[in-house]
Amino acid sequence: MTTLKALIVDDEEYSRKSLYFLIQENCPEVQVAGIVKSVSEARQLISAQVFNLVFLDIAMPKENGFELLPALQERNIRVIFTTAYDQYALKALKANAIDYLLKPIDIEELKTAVSKAEAWANLTSPRTPESLSSRESDESSQPTSSASRTQKKITLPNTYGFNVIDTADIIYVEADSNYSEFHLQDGEKLVISKPLKEIEDSLDPQEFLRIHKSVIVNFRYIKSYVNKNGWQIILSNGVTLPVSRRRATEFQEKAKNYFNK
């Protein structure tokens, strides 16, 4: 069982104490290592101690909970929002939160949220030298072509945990500030708080190409390529996307290689 070292941030004393006792009684995998009443106090504590989870209230005096997120993201600390207001749910999703708990906090919902946090911690925990050695041994007996090293699945966090999707199901990814919106072949859209450059680095460059500063496309879903007041591609789902002039030559070369395999 992975131990989650947690910080509680809430301006209300009753809420802090109530959440602490709920965690103590119901979540043995969580070690509450700090309790503070403001964002400024939380910043000071996370700069001095190591945490991997924060239970974070949103509506607080001076600074709200969202203003703590940059400091948490720098340290790869994940968040479970705890709030009396439900209007922040979408913003919490875009902030890559593990979960969003409404006060008064339900015990079963708390346990579910902690289970998601533990699953995330297991996925992101450093591998031991023994596990690395074992994996390297296994890989040494496998073909080392670029195709075998290519990431064919990608993990995307959502409100309830994680979506593990095949990269083949991604039609295109569109940037929205520091968020990225995945458009999947079944019509589903997933929004995560990662910049497009980070997404681009995780995808196979033989299958995907950034055709514009804000768009990455999957070659397999390209239906046509036309010049209507500038180059555009039309995807199998009917969406038309522009190809920037500076990327047009690279697109044409890669498209030729891809479709002439």
Rank of each mutant, 00 (worst) to 15 (best):
Ser115Leu: 13
Asn96Leu: 04
Lys103Ala: 11
Ala95Tyr: 04
Leu102Gln: 10
Lys111Ser: 05
Ile105Glu: 07
Val114Cys: 08
Lys111Pro: 00
Lys91Arg: 15
Ala117Gly: 11
Tyr85Ile: 03
Glu109Met: 13
Val114Leu: 07
Asp106Glu: 14
Gln87Leu: 07
Lys116Phe: 13
Tyr100Met: 08
Ala84Tyr: 03
Tyr100Glu: 07
Lys91Glu: 15
Ala92Arg: 01
Ile107Arg: 12
Ala117Glu: 02
Lys116Asp: 11
Ala97Thr: 02
Leu102Thr: 10
Ala117Cys: 10
Ala117Thr: 02
Ser115His: 13
Ala92Pro: 04
Leu110Phe: 11
Glu108Pro: 06
Lys103Phe: 10
Lys94Trp: 05
Ala117Lys: 01
Ile98Trp: 00
Ile98Asp: 00
Ser115Ala: 15
Tyr85Glu: 10
Ala113Cys: 12
Asp106Ser: 13
Asn96Arg: 06
Leu93Thr: 04
Ala92Trp: 03
Gln87Ser: 08
Leu101Asp: 07
Val114Lys: 03
Ala89Tyr: 06
Ala117Tyr: 00
Asp99Cys: 04
Ala84Asp: 03
Tyr85Trp: 09
Asp99Val: 02
Ala92Asn: 04
Ala92Asp: 02
Lys116Met: 12
Leu110Ser: 09
Ile105Cys: 10
Ala117Asp: 06
Pro104Asn: 12
Tyr100Arg: 06
Gln87Glu: 14
Ala117Ser: 10
Asp99Pro: 03
Ile107Trp: 08
Leu101Val: 07
Ile105Gly: 09
Tyr88Ser: 03
Asp99Thr: 01
Ala117Asn: 05
Leu101Trp: 09
Glu109Ser: 14
Asn96Tyr: 06
Gln87His: 14
Asp86Asn: 13
Asn96Trp: 09
Lys94Met: 12
Lys94Arg: 13
Ala84Ile: 04
Lys91Met: 13
Ala84Glu: 06
Ala92Ile: 04
Lys103Gly: 08
Ala97Asp: 02
Ile107Leu: 09
Ile98Thr: 11
Lys94Ala: 11
Leu110Pro: 01
Asn96Cys: 07
Lys116Cys: 14
Leu102Phe: 06
Thr112Trp: 13
Asn96Ser: 14
Ala84Asn: 07
Ile107Gly: 10
Ile105Met: 08
Ile105Val: 15
Gln87Thr: 05
Glu108Ala: 15
Asp99Arg: 03
